[in-house]
Amino acid sequence: MSQNPYHDDRGNKDASITKRHGVGEIPTRKGGKSRPAPGGPFLIGDAMTGGYGKGPDILHDCTVSVDRGEIAVIVGPNGAGKSTAMKAVFGMLDVRSGSVRLDGEDITALSPQDRVAKGMGFVPQNNNIFTSLSVEENLEMGAFIRRDDISGTMEQVFDLFPILREKRRQAAGELSGGQRQQVAVGRALMTRPKVLMLDEPTAGVSPIVMDELFDRIIEVARTGIPILMVEQNARQALEIADKGYVLVQGQNAYTGTGKELLADPEVRKSFLGG
């Protein structure tokens, strides 16, 4: 990445001529076409190897998947490549070998935009709301690709997160951490995604709010939307997970149901603190 001379601004910090707020980091990719690839789980990143730009590989033969009606959780130590695995599934970095398949289609070549259109919803870890837009506008923007009436879906989101109904006219940037996460998840739900991907939805919120968010996530999963998420709070996440992946240094270390992983003495010792 750093080899690109256009990424060097020679330390310019002059905000009176450039605006750094909200600059995009997702690399521009020419999207290819999807191919039919029947069978397998609903969404799977299969044996993915890759990294950012021309940099070294971060993922090595990493596999994550989620099936209909399931919650799959990716856990692991810091720097294990959890978020990177999510980004790879969403097409934000080059997958050099391996493939990503959604609902019987090979979508490895698709750009992130095309994946949104295919029905994938993604909630990034940081900067996951439009701070200067109102809550309602955030949700409208979530439904941007839809041309039909969105008021029904918005009602559903408001029913799921009642606090958002109250604050619908307020700028999303003025909300508390937990409320922001609700806006972020709500925005992603507005597309009526076929699968929802959450990157550390509980990062930086208080334990009480965290429990509440987990409850809501389970509720979303019950409506039939498969959820693939990365979590820092491994124990709690594995408790609600149908499927768990423990990544270490970009590789699958342990895989199993949430209960199995919680019961596994190795996993407990190394990741769950005994």
Partner: peptide, 16 residues
């Protein structure tokens, strides 16, 4: 306005 606020999230919302 959404793109002005957050390019990446606009992209993830399907805004071209």
């Amino acid at each position: 306005r959404a793109y002005s606020d957050n390019e990446d999230l606009a992209l993830l919302s399907g805004i071209n």
